[in-house]
Each structure stands twice: as structure tokens, then as C-alpha cells.
Amino acid sequence: MSVIYTENISFRYTDKPVLENISFNVDRPCLLAVIGPNGSGKTTLLKMLDGTLFPETGRALVCGKDTRRFSRREMARLVAMVPQEVPPVFPFVAEEIVLMGRFPHQGHRLFEDKKDYRIVYDAMEKTDALPFARRRFSELSAGERQRVLIARALAQEPEILLLDESTVYLDLKHQAQFLSLIRALTRDRGLTVVFVTHDINLAAQNADQILLLYNGKKYAIGTPADVLTAKNIKEVYDVQVGIDLNPHNGSPRLTLFA
């Protein structure tokens, strides 16, 4: 059973198709990077995978089940998404935000129990969010907020983690920490991570698979070495790049010729 299986997904918000006939599958837990130019449908594709949107034609299966057949609660226990940006309205503190990640596990209980608090503590420790656990979410920096939202997603204890540009606001140290965290979770706990990013070198170094989108279509999918060729990048992004191997880890490395 594939973790993620999509079959001919198409979708449009208005007349213009955003996704066209996308099929791919993820057979076992791994890190899948989704790259592509602006407006190529990356975020929309993520929304197909957690049932925020449903494909117009085709279907998306998560752990063998069509996304249309999930209740919201079931879905939230299986798939967690870290969104790009959430404008805060009312003054919640960081810990309260992370506690909300426990909602899908709580049934009709009105208050958290010890286990919830333990899981939330662990999640915040992993993303280094404990130092500001009791500060207001609205007063945090963009990077700190991102770490809170990642912790909330971890508190959902999902099997699939969707990340929408989650590393953009993180400083170098927290970027490194976060990447090694998701790699460890993939290796040890069988977490599947699908992350949208514009940082192709980051994708090249960390992803097991890369999905390259172009105008809503699947342009290529495969290992970083397969997908990241100068020819592919030239056609999709319309830029000249040089590609060599990173001497530290052997992954493809892009140099932008500007």
C-alpha cells in the first residue's frame, strides 16, 4: 500500500487549470521535495493531500484511502500540515497553539490530560520552541512562529507531514536542526514528509525524491540526481545553471549563472 498515491489529479480555482493530470506515488516513508516556479501548483498539490481541497478529476489516496472518504478528524490524525503564514487574531500563547494539535486525538474531552501535555512538551523541545512556550504567538518572530506551528503539526502525531516553505524564516541553526529532525523522524518513525520549497539545493541535499512541477503539470519525478539536470532546470525555470556534485555529500549542487 502506497503512503501517497495520486491518479490523474486535475484542479482549477477558476478557469485556468492549476493542476493537470498529476500522478505520482510515494511507496514508503521518505522525504519528497516539491519544487517548481511560482504558480506551478505546489501549494495546491499539498492541499490535495490533506483534503483541504479535493481533485476535480482523478483521485488522491492517503494510506490507501481516498481523501474524500476521510472525516476531518481521521485526516488530522494521519496528515499534518505546516502552513506558510497564519495571521494571529486573538492573544493565544505559543503553548496553547501547540496544544490545539492534540484536538484530533481528544474525542469529546474538554481538557488536556498529562499525555497531551507530555507530547506537546516533546514536540516543542524538538523544534526548540520551549523558550517562548508562554509568550504570545503574535509577539514572536516569523521564525519562532514557524517553530511553534511545526511543533503543533508534530503534536498531531501524523504519519505524513506537509510543509509549505517551512524553512524560509528559520535561521541557519534552526534550519539544520529541523532538517535533521525530519530526517530522523522519517528514518526512525516512518514519517513521510512532503515539502514545498524554492531552495533547490536544500531539496537536493535532503530529499529522497524530488517532484518538479511546471505549469500545473508533473515535469519530472525521481531522485535528486535524476531530476536536477541543467536541461530540466533550463526548461522549467528558464535560467542557466551549472550542476556539479557537492563534495561533502555527493548530492547535486546548483550554481546559478546570472
Partner: peptide
């Protein structure tokens, strides 16, 4: 209500039938 305050999309992602 706590979830809905975070926005409908977020609430739905956290498992609420909004």
C-alpha cells in the same frame, strides 16, 4: 471555538468539521 479562531482552514486541518 478555540480552533475556529485560528481560521477555518487551520481548524479543518486540525480535525474540525468546521
Amino acid at each position: 471555538l478555540n480552533l475556529l479562531v485560528q481560521g477555518e482552514e487551520t481548524a479543518s486541518r486540525l480535525g474540525l468539521n468546521t
